[in-house]
Design a binder for these strands. Structure first.
Lengths: 247, 247
DNA sequence: CCCGCGTCTGTGAGAATGCTCAGAGGCATG
DNA sequence: CATGCCTCTGAGCATTCTCACAGACGCGGG
């Protein structure tokens, strides 16, 4: 089998061999959330550290020298923007992904994305954070690997930057949720993903619903992606779903 | 019975010599269950300890420094999640396998497996717990030694991640129970397994049925795995079954 | 060579699991 | 403010799986 960009069996680091693992600092006062994020990021190929307060974050950033920072706007001691400016005083090149409450003033955020940074609103899905962070690094880093944001399984391919999916050259229109689900499947080909795993990654972390929703969206995806073609999405009864090219 | 090494026949702990045995802490208020689990885990190559309460678990974890924790969600004193967060505060990298009642799955599991942790619902089969735990360790452990999840006996091979079985390159479709039975056989090749042993490992621990069910599933497996080929599954009359490559 | 016990397998009922439809509510857009 | 798309819930249906029963088969001992 040809080597794939986004490695088989869950290895996501684009260029493990050539470049060192990118470093990310996760800052959130809700410790469990920070740890979960860090843990997921490590599994995605990052070197991750956590901080629970603004001042810790500044200190940690100075020592750890991260390539990117995931930064909660609402911190007990310092404001997120304040933390950012202090970090930037030392390292102007660091990329930042803000975490904000949905109701929070989005006008303050407005100027941020212009600077190249990005944000997601709480509650978010982990896939969302991963995707945004990868996007940030891809854009800002000296990595000019612009073409890297492309996933392929058989004749199905996804351009993450353009948010575009094609099968056999033909364009497929997907809703936001469908797109995220498909991305998660495509990033973990040839590997069974349980409904719980999918739910945890693709849906917001405080989603209260049941795993039934996964079946529903798998059904939507099949209608659009596998319609009348060789199926790529397979059910493993009692276990989960798997994306696998035809053998 | 002859003295056996830990990873007795088939336990693919190839690196027993190089790496130290992984450490696991088993936490369940049902003492007999905790001890059975620990005992089975030890035979599978782990160093295992037990705790029967949440506070004991936290204390034990701090001292024992396990690589993984098997953690009942329902404990007399502390909640499973509470125990986890206290352990994580001390060691953020520990892997956790939750044990939960089937009814409580839907509402509380969301967010749990997100960090890479996993869960099984009670009642479970011991093989299920072993497999999940090995999976956790494989993933979280030394970066990504992903290729390890493959079992082979003669021309029969099983990819545990993809939940896929092939014989001579040809795919074989198995149900969940058939798959677990075959995995148990393949992990213990060249070794007779009694029906009682198989029942204890592959079926849920509170399964009330008779050993006859094992014969039935061996029969299913033979039809799919050995059909018209050199048989790998052999009956040892009056003793049990054995998986053995043709000599 | 025959008998008895252990093993194998066909049949079918009930349960579990997964798929899809229809519709309500929400959010964004014009 | 109205419209339309998206998300999610609930229910019904179809399929598949699990397991019990019971009779057939065959091995090994006498």
């Amino acid at each position: 089998m040809a080597q794939r960009k986004f490695g088989s069996a869950g290895t996501h680091a684009e260029d493990v061999s050539t470049a060192p693992k990118p470093r990310v600092l996760v800052v959130d006062d809700e410790q469990s959330l920070a740890e979960v994020l860090a843990s997921v990021l490590r599994r995605d190929g990052w070197t991750a550290r956590t901080a629970y307060t603004g001042s810790d974050a500044v200190r940690e950033a100075r020592e750890f020298k991260p390539d990117a920072v995931v930064l909660d706007m609402m911190l007990p001691d310092l404001d997120g923007l304040e933390v950012l400016s202090r970090i930037r005083a030392w390292d102007a090149d660091v990329s930042v992904l803000f975490l904000t409450a949905r109701e929070s003033v989005e006008d303050r955020i407005a100027g941020i994305t212009a600077g190249g940074d990005d944000y997601v609103t709480k509650p978010f899905s982990l896939e969302e954070v991963l995707a945004r962070l990868r996007g940030l690094l891809r854009r800002s880093g000296s990595t000019r690997e612009q073409a890297a944001a492309s996933l392929t399984v058989a004749d199905l391919s996804m351009d993450e930057d353009a948010h575009e999916v094609t099968r056999a050259g033909e364009r497929i229109e997907l809703t936001a949720t469908e797109f995220e689900l498909l991305r998660f499947l495509m990033r973990n080909p040839r590997r069974v993903l349980s409904k719980a795993q999918i739910l945890d990654r693709v849906w917001d972390y405080d989603f209260g619903g049941k795993a039934h929703i996964v079946e529903l969206y798998i059904s939507y995806l099949r209608k659009k992606v596998d319609a009348g073609r060789e199926p790529l999405i397979h059910t493993v009864r009692g276990v989960g779903y798997i994306m696998r090219p035809p053998s």
